[in-house]
């Protein structure tokens, strides 16, 4: 599903993103990527969604190879992924419903299908009643639920979340995590970058630890051992 083969990313200013990372993530897995700030978590996710291209090595995602990927293919790669950001990234002048529908319009889904799928996705994240609200009228947790609904609505094979709970209080964070777990139960591969110990420890999933760009541990049913 996702395969890193001796992947290195060094930014143009010399900063090391990830260094010689090799690993495999199988279909249906739930993976935490942890590590202190600057450890390369974000770079790891950015490589998967081709926000950055690897300097060396190769990354395979859903059958796409990221290195030297033609520009015109990037949208198709991204459509096979659902992405959740720490800062939500919702279109501010669209309602919750429109934001979710937007992801379907991009793939040129039939209007009939959009009308069916969007309420389902909003229902799944528990936001049916806020469909007409604009992002500015929603709380952080609610906005992140909209983002989740948007990420899910096209039934992506992989869902990537970069610090999805970074801007949320502990209780809301837990709720979002439970949602992610639920999504994973339905067969979607979920990859979450985080540095929240409580969450990682309580979920008992595979944990990949990065430090200074290097893969330092990869444990099934792991805990957040880094006390940094």
């Amino acid at each position: 599903m996702i395969r890193f083969v001796d992947t290195t990313k060094i930014y143009s200013n010399g900063v090391v993103g990830v260094k010689n990372v090799t690993l495999n993530i199988e279909k249906g897995e739930f993976v935490f990527v942890i590590g202190p700030s600057g450890s390369g978590k974000s770079t790891f996710l950015k490589l998967i969604m081709h926000e950055e291209a690897p300097t060396e090595g190769e990354v395979y995602v859903n059958g796409y190879s990221i290195h030297n990927m033609p520009r015109s293919e990037v949208p198709y790669l991204r459509r096979s992924l659902g992405v959740v950001f720490q800062d939500f990234r919702l279109l501010p002048n669209k309602t919750a419903y429109e934001n979710v529908a937007f992801a379907m319009q991009i793939v040129e889904a039939l209007p009939r299908e959009i009308r069916r799928q969007v309420p389902l996705a909003l229902g799944l994240v528990g936001l049916s009643k806020k469909a007409r609200a604009y992002p500015g009228q929603l709380s952080g947790g609610e906005q992140q639920r909209v983002v989740l609904a948007r990420a899910l609505v096209n039934n992506p094979a992989v869902l990537i979340a970069d610090e999805p709970t970074g801007n949320l209080d502990p209780k809301t964070s837990m709720e979002i995590m439970e949602l992610l777990d639920e999504i994973n139960q339905r067969g979607t591969t979920v990859i979450v970058a985080t540095h929240e110990k409580n969450i990682v420890d309580s979920m008992k999933k595979r944990v990949i630890t990065l430090d200074k760009g290097e893969l330092v541990s990869d444990v099934k049913k792991g805990l957040y051992t880094d006390e940094d």
Binding site: V83, R89, L91, I106, R150
Partner: peptide
């Protein structure tokens, strides 16, 4: 530009 960026991340061509 934020909007454009978001659209790109969601996979708009």
């Amino acid at each position: 530009r934020k909007e454009i960026e978001i659209m790109k991340y969601v996979g708009a061509n």
